[in-house]
């Protein structure tokens, strides 16, 4: 049996494609257990998909009751992350970041 080609979601055309939801990662640097890598703090990316909700690891790490929060897979360009140092500026990197670290870009 042939492998079915990848198709768009049924009934969806290119014109229905939603606008990318751009977010900025918080620049805060609290000293405790944090899953958001420092090299992405303050960077702007696009929400690629939303996962979860999952319990907040920042609370789980200390054994306290943990809130369930959306986890977003956020897509960044290498040029956004590394600036002029990026070897391949158009390459992408994706990171899964909890909602409370992200602010919609329109809010700025």
């Amino acid at each position: 049996m042939a492998i079915a080609p990848k198709t768009a979601i049924a009934g969806m055309t290119m014109t229905d494609k939603p606008q990318p939801e751009m977010v900025r990662v918080s620049t805060m640097m609290p000293p405790g257990h944090i899953r958001t890598p420092a090299y992405l703090r303050g960077k702007i990316g696009e929400i690629e998909r939303t996962l979860g909700p999952f319990h907040n690891p920042e609370q789980l790490a200390y054994g306290v009751p943990a809130d369930k929060l959306p986890l977003h897979r956020v897509r960044f360009t290498m040029s956004e992350v590394w600036g002029a140092d990026a070897e391949n500026p158009d390459d992408l990197i994706e990171a899964e970041i909890f909602a409370h670290w992200l602010t919609p870009l329109e809010a700025h």
């Binding site: 609290p30 890598p37 090299y39």
Partner: peptide, 13 residues
């Protein structure tokens, strides 16, 4: 050790 800023184990980059 530090009380703010990037922590030692956060080595990406």
């Amino acid at each position: 050790t530090q009380t703010d800023g990037r922590r030692w184990h956060d080595m990406g980059g």
